[in-house]
């Protein structure tokens, strides 16, 4: 049963825009195959993609570049963008707070702490990823409970509590680094936390994709009920939603997605805050359309940024640095344009 009908005005126009967005993502992904430091002609790429069997010199290297270097990296960037944006949108809905985002709630720092602790104990990769998830969950729970215990209704309280948790988990990360064996473990932790797509392979793409696809599917299936949460707990319960369970489910999904991105790319800020806002501005609140738009725009943003990061110069620019440099001013611009209407 659907509780919320899409406004009739949603119309062909936004529908067309959404289709255009998805088409743009497909186009950018294809174009990204042709972008990079290794010179590959469009002709060679077309030959390989179309399976034309031409025995040109350098064909093997060209295939390696295309299928083992660029394709996994493109897939990873898309998954990170979609995952962080969907997580951000989910947190914003469930906490009814437009300022909520994986980085601002301390989830990224918490995941980083969980992972560094697992690395300190020399646990296997899967356990490191699980620890990142647990750390992220602990951070978001702590931020939420702290904000609730202040009994303040200001939207800024949750953000402040998130920043406090973020600072706390950053300090705990420092502590783990401090006690880590400087000969081997310390370097591993530092390197892991930095994250990088410079060597992204199929395994990295899978690590980012599994929670994003699974979490995204669950959130999409629950989209109408999640939309009820935006009305407030009482109203949602009155309309038949199991508020506590629903909220837990959304937080679990969003945190798993965030933890996966931290595992692959380190702490990447601003995507989860910025993209859901733009998606809502363009596509309104209708949950299905907003979700697809959010995921697509997030993927477009991170893929585009990563294309620049890996091809502009011989120097590889860290993803987190690029998203912050673009994201922070753009977000300020959005805030000033909104003139404080929704930001009290």
């Amino acid at each position: 049963m659907k509780f919320w009908r899409a406004p009739p005005a949603a119309d062909a126009e936004t529908h067309g825009l959404l289709l255009a967005l998805v088409a743009a993502l497909v186009a950018l992904a294809l174009a990204s195959l042709a972008i990079g430091r290794y010179p590959l002609s469009l002709e060679t790429i077309a030959d390989i993609l179309l399976g034309r069997d031409i025995d040109a010199p350098g064909r093997a290297t060209a295939e390696t570049i295309l299928f083992l270097v660029r394709l996994p990296r493109i897939a990873t960037a898309i998954m990170i963008g979609a995952g962080l944006s969907l997580a951000g949108a989910a947190y914003q809905t469930v906490f009814r707070n437009p300022m909520a985002s994986p980085a601002l709630l301390g989830v990224s720092a918490g995941a980083g702490f969980g992972a560094s602790l697992a690395l300190l104990l020399h646990l296997p990769t899967l356990a490191v990823e699980a620890a990142a998830f647990c750390g992220g969950l602990a951070a978001v729970a702590a931020s939420y409970l702290a904000a609730r215990s202040t009994r303040s209704h200001s939207l800024l309280t949750l953000v402040l509590c998130g920043m406090v948790m973020s600072a706390l988990f950053q300090a705990l990360i420092s502590l783990v680094k401090y006690v880590a064996d400087p000969v081997d473990t310390l370097a591993t932790i530092t390197f892991w936390l930095m994250g990088s797509l410079a060597k992204a392979n199929a395994a990295d793409a899978a690590t980012a994709a599994a929670p994003t696809v699974l979490g995204g599917a669950i959130l999409f299936a629950l989209r109408w009920r999640i939309a009820l949460l935006a009305l407030g707990d009482h109203e949602a319960a009155a309309l038949g939603a199991d508020v506590a369970r629903l909220r837990a489910m959304v937080i679990l999904c969003a945190t798993a997605m965030t933890a996966a991105t931290v595992c692959v790319a380190g702490i990447v800020g601003w995507v989860g805050l910025l993209v859901p806002h733009i998606a809502r501005m363009l596509f309104g609140m209708e949950p299905g359309r907003a979700m697809i738009a959010t995921a697509t725009m997030g993927a477009l943003f991170v893929l585009g940024v990563d294309d620049v990061a890996r091809s502009a110069s011989i120097i590889e620019i860290p993803l987190g640095v690029m998203t912050a440099v673009i994201g922070a001013p753009f977000f300020l611009f959005l805030v000033t344009r909104a003139r404080g209407e929704q930001w009290s």
Partner: peptide
């Protein structure tokens, strides 16, 4: 291959750059 007259002490690059 990394000698481009740079000023900074270190330079970080992608795997694709290495292959290139």
């Amino acid at each position: 291959v990394t000698d481009d007259g740079r000023e900074q002490e270190s330079v970080t690059f992608s795997l694709e750059q290495l292959i290139a």
